[in-house]
């Protein structure tokens, strides 16, 4: 199941951010998107995650045209198919690490995958910290919890918006490797926005977003 972006456009007033953008990402592929500030990286990520609607064009994941889904189906799509990792390790301070991982499953107590969450925490190296609260975790640990949270509902696609922005280089590399290994293991698509070219090069492809168009680095 791949991701296709066809003629995707988005403007804010007179400013064109995305201009007939096309992209295809194969299942299991990880791509990095780089570009100057204000080039529309986050907007693209938001549209892919169905948080924003494009002015025109299509986002097709497998057979599903995401931007044509109804409000109800969009919510379901987002909760089942997309995992977010943010620049800031956004965790709810009053929930333990384990609970934070389980947050996307809230409202479905009958299918709460507690064992999967524990397994994920195990895989991100936080088995011992499962019951700890965010305030007692380091920045890297928090971001790993956020990564585990993005994976808990086994999404088809992980969208990471500067996930290492608040980490030092060593921790950043660790996290990206972890993200990639988890994604590859489950054959998931990873789209990561970053400013760090070193990190970007660890992914399968690096695309540059300028003037509303994506171009392959060195291409």
């Amino acid at each position: 199941m791949n991701l296709r972006i066809e003629q995707l456009s988005k403007s804010f007033g007179n400013r064109v951010v995305l201009d007939g953008l096309n992209l295809t990402v194969e299942r299991g592929e990880a791509i990095a998107i780089v570009g100057p500030s204000g080039s529309g990286k986050s907007t693209l990520l938001n549209i892919l995650g169905s948080l924003e609607k494009p002015d025109s064009g299509k986002v097709v994941l497998g057979e599903v045209v995401v931007n044509e889904l109804t409000k109800h189906l969009l919510e379901a799509f987002r909760s089942r198919s997309v995992g977010f990792v943010f620049q800031e390790h956004l965790l709810l301070p009053y929930l333990s690490a384990l609970d934070n991982v389980l947050l996307p499953c809230l409202g479905h107590p009958e299918t709460t995958p507690i064992e999967s969450a524990r397994s994920l925490l195990d895989r991100v190296g936080l088995t011992e910290r499962a019951n700890d609260f965010p305030s007692t975790l380091s920045g890297g640990e928090r971001q790993r919890v956020a990564l585990a949270r993005a994976l808990i509902h086994e999404p088809l696609m992980i969208l990471a918006d500067e996930p290492t922005g608040s980490l030092d280089h060593e921790r950043a590399v660790e996290l990206v490797d972890l993200l990639l290994s988890e994604a590859k293991m489950q054959n998931r698509i990873v789209i990561m926005v970053t400013h760090n070219l070193d990190l970007a090069h660890r992914l399968d492809r690096t695309l540059i977003l300028t003037n509303g168009q994506l171009t392959l680095e060195g291409g």
């Binding site: 919510e75 909760s79 956004l90 709810l92 409202g107």
Partner: peptide, 15 residues
């Protein structure tokens, strides 16, 4: 910010 996070991780407005 918490509310936004909940929305991003896929919680419905109802939840």
């Amino acid at each position: 910010r918490d509310l936004k996070l909940m929305s991003y991780v896929g919680l419905s407005p109802k939840t």
